[in-house]
Amino acid sequence: MIKMLAFQTLRVVSLEILGSSCNLLANNVRSITKRCSPRSLQSQILRPLSSHQHNLKVPKVPTWEHVPEEELPRPTKIPADLVDRLERLALVDFRTQQGLECLEKAIRFADQLHVVDTSGVEPMDSVLEDRALYLRDDTVTEGDCAEELLKLAKNTVEEYFVAPPGNIPLPKREERAAILRHSEF
């Protein structure tokens, strides 16, 4: 009975640790808790009771800082005209309402960047920025493989790739949905 009680106390503590960790990975925390079957939760709880001395240089509890909601910009809502514009630009469709929610979540996740002070910091686009990269001489060294490459295309005439009629904008969103629905494998 005493053992049982100790167990329950520990369980509460453990869940609190999980629950109080910062909201950066809010979904993460929830799912980790969910993932643990009662059995694995027990084994996690039992672990601190083992005789192993914890190395003091290894942090014993999560060190991430909590990011308060009020430090983030307001959550983004994607208006209908932007949905249309993105689909035209990306040439892929959201397919469902869920696809749109997925984008809004991705933006929300990215919003955490604004907590970081980057004033005076230069953007970095390559880790090789500090060295001269190898450049070969500007002469043709290979090629003459047009036929081989054309073979990979579904539709060619002589040495040309064939495309359907061009310069026709995508139809309106509703019509698009109908077209895409019918285009299956």
Binding site: L91, A163, P164, P165, G166, I168, P169, L170, I179
Partner: peptide
């Protein structure tokens, strides 16, 4: 029906 439609 068009290049864009084929792409999409």
């Amino acid at each position: 029906s068009s290049t864009e439609v084929m792409y999409a």
